[in-house]
Amino acid sequence: MSEPARYRFLLISAFSLPEGAGYRMRAFRGRKEDMLLNGERLAPLLQDVEWDVHPGAPATHGQHPVEMREEFAITGVNRLPLVREACQSGKWNAIILLGGGDPGYVEAREIGHRHRVVVTACAHAQMHAACLLGTRFTVLDISENHNLRMADLVVQYRMTDRCASIRNVEFPLPRPAHAGRPNVQEESERHARGEPSAMLESAVTEAVAAIEEDGAESIILGCSAAYWLQTPLRERLAALGWDVPVLEGYSAAVAQAKMLVDLGVDASGLAFPADPPKRTRRRKFV
């Protein structure tokens, strides 16, 4: 009988849309590689991982990608039962929550620690990786409303003294509210065809401003749909003489999960106590 794989990861998407729904940016059924926005780029990190993808809970916020705070809250609540079921199964030693806004992440970690299962998410993993690379990072993000979600996460993750800025390129997700406007998916497809991308040009401009004006020493991508910017943006910055890392959420979350599995830890029981806690503290710091 073969030994179980060292890394057994379930990647859970933020939500799923039904067949025929508009604003679909990826497959929700079929090959697991096709259910990832950047499956081809992520493949090297997953070579030694036994893994699968859950398409996400059926969307109840609307038939479109998530940008608003309300939508993030709804999406987070919807996928917590999926996290609980995955942890209870005993099949996985890490859960990776896909999606740049980390919906449900903190609550999912509480569930994960109960079962000693690692839980990681894209924004959280990128911010912590960026802190290993330099003193301050900039979040390069896609739209005004999504920027506000990222600002909330910077505060929640205690990164206010490490985040140099949140820079907005204003190429939002494809949604009914943005009908007729250039969006991140169209720009991704344009770049894939070898055509000039206005979003890439805006990303270069804002990244240079983040370095020169804000003091950023690394760049993280706020939205998972902007994953395709990672390589061309890094190359363009290097051509300008800027030796600056550009991070992307899916790969950072998988790499962080591997690190925590290798360390044999998932989360602190003081940060995520049992119900009820075995011990309680008289004083807590905020």
Rank of each mutant, 00 (worst) to 15 (best):
M1P: 14
Y7Q: 03
Y7F: 15
F15R: 07
L17S: 08
P18C: 00
G20I: 04
G20S: 04
G20W: 03
A27F: 04
K32F: 03
L37A: 06
G39K: 03
V49R: 06
D52Y: 03
A57T: 02
H61F: 09
H61A: 13
M68A: 15
E70R: 15
F72K: 06
V83R: 00
A86I: 06
A86G: 09
C87T: 07
G90W: 06
I96F: 00
G100H: 07
D102I: 02
G104H: 09
Y105R: 04
A108C: 10
R116N: 15
V118W: 05
T120D: 10
A121V: 00
H124F: 14
M127F: 14
H128L: 15
H128I: 10
A129S: 11
A130T: 07
L132Y: 09
T135Y: 14
D141L: 05
D141P: 01
I142T: 13
S143K: 02
E144W: 11
V155Q: 09
F171N: 03
P172T: 07
P174Q: 08
R175D: 01
P176M: 01
G180K: 01
N183A: 00
N183V: 02
E186T: 12
E186M: 13
E187H: 07
S188L: 12
R190L: 06
R190T: 12
P196S: 04
S197C: 07
S197L: 02
S197G: 04
A198H: 10
E206R: 15
A207S: 15
A209N: 06
E212G: 04
E217L: 07
L221Y: 02
C223W: 01
A226R: 02
L233M: 09
L233S: 04
A238S: 12
A238E: 12
A239D: 13
L240R: 15
W242V: 05
S251N: 11
A252C: 15
A252L: 06
A257W: 03
K258T: 02
M259I: 10
V261K: 07
G264C: 01
P273H: 11
P277C: 02
T280P: 00
V286C: 05
